[in-house]
Amino acid sequence: MNMKTITFTLNRKEQSFDIEPDETLIDLLRRTGHTGTKLGCDTGMCGSCAVIVDGRAINACILFAFQANGRTVETIEGVGDFDSPHPLQTAMADAGAVQCGFCTPGIVMTAKALLDEKPDASEEDFKLHLDGNLCRCTGYVKIKEALLSCSSATGGES
């Protein structure tokens, strides 16, 4: 095993990790207790592993951990908690957009990346940006409702 150390900012805190050169970011995250990031396909085709790297949503099942070296990574654990949920989390919960919830962290992260860049995201923006997130439970209707309610274009805040 060729463990090497990398350092990156994880949820606003600079942290160092010993990694194997061929481990993916999701493996690193999950084995270090960041289990909110889910593995649904391991091939970049479902979006449940989405995390934000340098402001953009990526598939943590694809990105190698070493590629995160020196970058800024945000996971669902850094986004909100019971006493301070992110508006997206509140909106998803209230809209009935969380059924099994397995897709939810990925959807929250992908939508957050969009809203961070474009607080007044339109329905078309959400459709384009969320095109990598599968949800088998909800049929997306309530998800769309929840996301749109967080755009400043509809009076939401994010």
């Binding site: 598939n59 694809i62 992908t110 095109d131 990598g132």
Partner: peptide, 12 residues
């Protein structure tokens, strides 16, 4: 680029 699979993959 718009037709290129998904947002996370377009980002990578």
């Amino acid at each position: 680029a718009e037709a290129f699979v998904t947002q996370p993959i377009r980002n990578m």
